[in-house]
């Protein structure tokens, strides 16, 4: 069964379960196994390998930076790498760095499960969890703005370069100034869009009635049940087996 066809509630449940396990568990081996399970789930579920790699690659430099910071600043355990009298990396620091890196990779990978579905399905799923419709709708609507804001940032960045600003030759101070200059138009645009959207929604009777009916509803199929059962059995098995 491919992930796209899975019930949105199951996907949200998987996301919450995997992310929670990633945050609770401290053992690198268990985390590696959970990461492997998540990746198998994604690839067996029909998610494009290139997409998984693209999403992960975008975060690799941040994960690498956090890994180095953890290695250097976590001083627990025995010395592992020393320069003269100074201990650069300890065993505890390395272990913590691996744990944090694996946690981040799990969270990023599990987020890809959600990307296989449509926003309106998640809206129904969150409504099924008894969350207020207005909050759910606004959160998901805000997520839809992200690609638009990214496009806008790219346009402004391109406009700056086309008007003679050579970013390659600019130093870090100038680059930071440039990014700060981009912030205002992007924020203003986001606020403007939000204002326009709220007016458009109210003119189309949003929150007009106290109770809102749904045009479509989520159906929990046998396939969803089997998929959920297999997933949780595997997840619990990994946690118990590696703990022993």
């Amino acid at each position: 069964m491919i992930l796209t066809n899975l019930d949105a509630r199951v996907k949200l449940l998987m996301l919450v379960a995997v992310s929670s396990v990633a945050l609770i568990i401290q053992r690198p081996l268990t985390l590696a196994a959970v990461l492997l399970l998540t990746l198998i789930l994604l690839l067996a579920g029909g998610v494009d390998r290139a997409k998984v790699w693209k999403q992960t690659r975008a975060m690799l430099s941040i994960i690498g930076g956090i890994f180095i910071i953890q290695c250097v600043f976590c001083r627990a355990g025995l010395p592992l790498i020393t320069i003269g009298d100074f201990t650069l990396v300890t065993t505890g620091g390395l272990q913590m760095a691996v744990v944090v890196a694996l946690r981040l990779l799990i969270i990023i990978s599990s987020a890809l499960i959600v990307l296989t579905g449509e926003m309106r399905d998640y809206l129904l799923a969150l409504r099924w969890c008894r969350l207020p419709y207005e909050i759910v709708y606004m959160t998901l609507a805000a997520l839809r703005f992200i690609p638009l804001l990214r496009d806008e940032a790219v346009s402004i960045y391109s406009a700056m370069q086309m008007r003679g600003y050579n970013i390659k030759s600019a130093n870090w101070h100038k680059r930071i100034k440039l990014y700060l200059a981009m912030l205002l138009p992007i924020t203003a645009s986001a606020l403007h869009k939000a204002g326009q959207m709220s007016i458009a929604m109210e003119t189309r009777a949003f929150r007009c009635m106290p109770n809102r009916s749904e045009w479509r509803s989520l159906q929990f199929s046998r396939g969803d049940f089997i998929y959920t059962a297999i997933f949780f059995v595997l997840l619990i098995a990994i946690i118990i087996f590696i703990k022993q």
Binding site: M160, R163, M182
Partner: peptide, 22 residues
């Protein structure tokens, strides 16, 4: 790169908000 192309072509976006940043 865009800097080099910008020396040859001046481009005006359809939406002016996308090129005003000062």
């Amino acid at each position: 790169n865009l800097f080099a192309i910008g020396q040859r072509i001046g481009y005006i976006w359809q939406n002016p908000n996308r090129q005003l940043f000062c």
